[in-house]
Simulated assay, not measured.
Amino acid sequence: MCTVCGCGTSHDHDHGHDHAHGHSHGELHFGHGPAGAQVAGMSQARLIEIETDILSKNDRFAAANRQVLQARGAFAVNLVSSPGSGKTTLLCKTIEALGDQPLAVIEGDQQTANDAERIRATGAQAVQINTGKGCHLDAHMVGHAMEHLDIAPGSVLFIENVGNLVCPAGFDLGEDCKVAVLSVTEGEDKPLKYPDMFTVSKLALLNKTDLAPHCDVDLDLYEANLRRVNPGIEVLRLSARTGEGMREWIAWLRGNLGRKVPQAAE
């Protein structure tokens, strides 16, 4: 269910004709207008109405999730990325590096429990959410998953979202922050192509840096493009395979958790 079309939500079609705006060099842009998107047979006003309705309902569930996590002093991270960026491998290595730190994991995929099984193999508790044709997690799904987890005081809750750099950007799950994971093989212009995701992310992890010498990739340009769309974004370079940058990533997690726990005690 996406904010721009309300897929999965019944709606009436009107017959406004909002057309793409053409530019030079054969480009067609369908992102103009107040809604920032176009759907055949639907006006901009109707798109905005649907988006507002969907997100307002989601935000109520997100607020409830956030209240539960705040009461327990738990730090929740929404991991977002393209498919194949290395989120699950990174998460397994992160769990190992955190040692006896209380934590829990929610895995999101359209099908299979493969990733949850990999997480459970580390000894961590995990719940798998299958979204079917859905392209992202929402706060209602996450709330149900939280009910099946023992989220101890002072825990870290990792939410591994469905691999998608578009739809998850618009949905608050009740997390403290979004962390975007990018493989260095995806190309330095990825932040420019999918700016919404990186605009809402607090941290970007440039993963698989061990592959950088074998790829035509400029990591400095990667970082520059991230900050071009989000000047305040933090960036860490790491490799889950070699361990490069893992110390800084773990320190980042512990630092943010440390700031969250005192708030819960107040």
Rank of each mutant, 00 (worst) to 15 (best):
G154L: 00
L165E: 09
D220V: 12
G108Y: 00
R241E: 15
C135N: 05
G232I: 04
Q111L: 11
S56N: 09
L165R: 03
V261M: 12
A204C: 13
A224W: 12
H21D: 11
P231R: 15
R66P: 07
E51L: 09
S43Q: 04
A251W: 05
Y194T: 06
T209E: 02
A71K: 10
A113R: 06
N65F: 01
H15D: 09
E117Q: 13
A124G: 03
I250V: 13
N256P: 03
P34A: 14
V68R: 14
I106Q: 02
G108H: 07
K190T: 15
T112I: 07
N130V: 07
N114A: 12
E188A: 15
L192H: 08
L238I: 05
G41N: 14
H214N: 13
L173K: 04
P262N: 03
L219V: 07
C215W: 06
M246N: 12
G16H: 09
I54D: 02
Q125P: 02
D196T: 15
M141N: 00
S201N: 03
D14E: 10
R46M: 14
L226W: 04
A169R: 00
G163M: 10
V184M: 02
G170V: 01
P213S: 08
A251Y: 02
N161S: 01
E160M: 08
D216F: 02
M141I: 02
V229L: 10
F61S: 02
Q70L: 11
Q263A: 08
R254G: 05
G232D: 09
A212K: 03
W252F: 14
A76E: 01
G26V: 11
S10L: 09
L103D: 00
A113V: 05
T112C: 03
L236G: 10
G73I: 11
P83Y: 00
A124C: 14
T131C: 10
E186Y: 02
T242W: 04
V156C: 00
